[in-house]
Design a binder for these strands. Structure first.
Lengths: 345, 345
DNA sequence: GGCGACAGCGTAACCGGTTACAATGGCGAA
DNA sequence: TTCGCCATTGTAACCGGTTACGCTGTCGCC
């Protein structure tokens, strides 16, 4: 592989001149520049980005550290990031925490000297730990993580408000006994969604204390919840799953048990995964524009790189929006409410 | 940010000794090593990977260049690559051709000095062009691209055989009038699948010349094909779409037109996207393990990096496997064949 | 004609590590 | 005691670029 020295020799100039010519800086006469360019062509010279970034002290690369590299959430967030990064000529270096704290530390450490900034999404890491791992000198934006104490800019989804709105919508459709299927206990999104549900129930339907079934965001846990519902004869005329995945499992299992959706129970999810609209009936859900999580985060990071002093104050909160589909179609008449109270399933 | 020099000074040793201690090389006494490590801790030193890779002449990073960073295909392939790369402590640098030839060249050039090897998936690039862009000195594996003339190792999916097998299966289920919805004309996968279909039809059902409708892998083009079928009154008792996406659109539109699947027509797709099993009835399709495309490619690249001389001869061809679901459930009795011949839709 | 200003170019230091080679010193053997 | 060997450590070159600074020569001006 040809180096700059080779090019300089070939063109009969010094490395400094060759560098200037190649980078289009001033102080190079047209003939000299032409000679250098000819040498570049001839030797097939491509600048060595590694060496370049060493002196320039910038790499034109941002590190993206995600909990895993899997599924639609991942691809959408990357798409959003790339959209913005590409416009600014930035490259993406992928890091993966592989679910382990130790790996997370390693992934972050490995980024030093490779990237100009970091986009990190640490869904179940304590802020103090995170602070330990992060290099304060490296511009960093957190994705889907509100760590106000760290004073880092972040972009998050308003899960609380989304869940609140969804619960309201179910009640507005005439539901009286709404059951929530929660996500993993340690997961912030899951907790916020649960809070939103609980608060909405407390405020609007205060007569009853809300029922919450455990779940872990997986399809199987949705199925399990369905069995609990059916076998336990739990009174319910609507089920709000903390994510679509569980809603899908729930619906499948309910169908097997002969329970009709929305005839016997309404079902709602959260996320609006592509599958949601393809089910029949379509799944009512809160749409989260995951790509915007990525693109907004990347935009914040770019501002950080430009030198703006951004803290937690410049956080962006994305509000999800309600998508109503078939699984919450209102029952014909007010019969629902009374029937539900009697024997919902 | 602390540098190695800082650490050395703090520990009262030379940079060479500090480097050796940190990298666990021999020839360092325990006390010296301890002193260095203490300095590392104290100064919070993290080695600068950029500088390190400059001298080591390796970056522990592989470049992944894909046509786009979008959807399930992308996330699965990355997952497969990461699985293997992670085991070897390799990082992933993402490149995106954004659909343009010019961008492709830029993406490849930008990799020089940043990566030890390249994983490239150029679905609609001519081999000659590709050869121009690639650096012959940089170990490269092609994904889903058979460019025998370049003599590069590659890993591909046997689309031809998959389509052939699917067509056979449809015929075995009693279909007589099978229609194919093709993918984009310039796309290699699409062409191979079409060839497989045509050949299978020629061999097994030679009495009729196969009908092929145009498509572009999008859901909409599947819907369009459905309208052609219905409005054009095309005789068909089975439709084989070149990918699942189109099959999904097709089924949705057929449902709107009151055509029952598989009652009136059987439908089959290709790819086995997650949605396929969630449709009701489930979509019969050829399962392509996209993640294996990535993991196998990465394994080939690792061998290349280890110094093995691999050429096109070490290509791996992945055979997709048939997943039969509801959309091709055999009709009750032989009534189908005759009914179909009379008035299929 | 002599002066300074300035454009074009080259020399060499530097980015932050690694490592070949040389220097040092402790120890056992003669 | 002296020599040599070897393990430990230090010095400095190097990876492949960028760039501060200095040198040279041309030009305009007094």
């Amino acid at each position: 592989m040809a180096t700059l020295r080779d090019v300089a020799r070939e063109a009969g100039v010094s490395v400094a001149t060759a560098s200037r010519a190649i980078n289009g800086l001033g102080n190079v006469t047209a003939p000299t520049r032409a000679a250098v360019m000819a040498a570049v062509k001839k030797l097939n010279f491509v600048p060595h980005s590694g060496a370049r970034s060493l002196t320039r002290r910038k790499t034109d690369t941002v590190g993206v550290i995600l909990p895993d590299l899997f599924g639609e959430f991942f691809s959408e967030i990357i798409r959003g990031i790339d959209l913005v990064a590409h416009e600014s000529g930035m490259h993406l270096l992928l890091g993966n925490m592989h679910g382990s704290t130790h790996e997370t530390a390693a992934a972050i450490a490995a980024m030093r000297g490779r990237v100009d900034g970091l986009l990190v999404m640490p869904p179940d890491l304590k802020p103090e730990l995170l602070a330990d791992y992060l290099d304060p000198a490296l511009p960093t934006v957190l994705l889907n993580y509100d760590a106000g104490s760290l004073d880092l800019p972040f972009v998050a989804v308003d899960n609380y408000r989304g869940a609140y709105a969804m619960t309201e919508a179910l009640l507005a459709h005439g539901a009286r006994q709404v059951i929530h299927i929660a996500g993993p206990k340690h997961n912030r999104d899951a907790r916020d969604r649960q809070r939103g549900f609980v608060d909405a129930m407390a405020k609007i339907a205060k007569e009853r204390s809300p029922v919450i079934l455990p779940g872990d965001f997986s399809e199987e846990s949705g199925e399990k919840a369905a069995r609990l519902l059916v076998e336990g004869q739990l009174p319910a005329d609507a089920v709000f799953a903390a994510n679509d995945q569980m809603a899908v499992g729930l619906i499948a299992e309910l169908a097997r048990a002969g329970v009709s959706v929305p005839g016997d129970v309404m079902v709602a999810g959260f996320d609006d995964i592509p599958l949601a609209r393809h089910l029949s009936p379509g799944l009512t859900t809160m749409q989260v524009n995951i790509d915007r999580l990525g693109s907004t985060g990347m935009m914040l990071l770019l501002r950080l790189l430009r030198g703006d002093a951004l803290g937690a104050a410049s956080a962006t909160i994305l509000t999800p929006n309600l998508i109503e589909r078939g699984t919450t179609a209102s029952a014909p008449g007010a019969a629902r409410a009374t029937a539900a109270a009697a024997s919902p399933l």
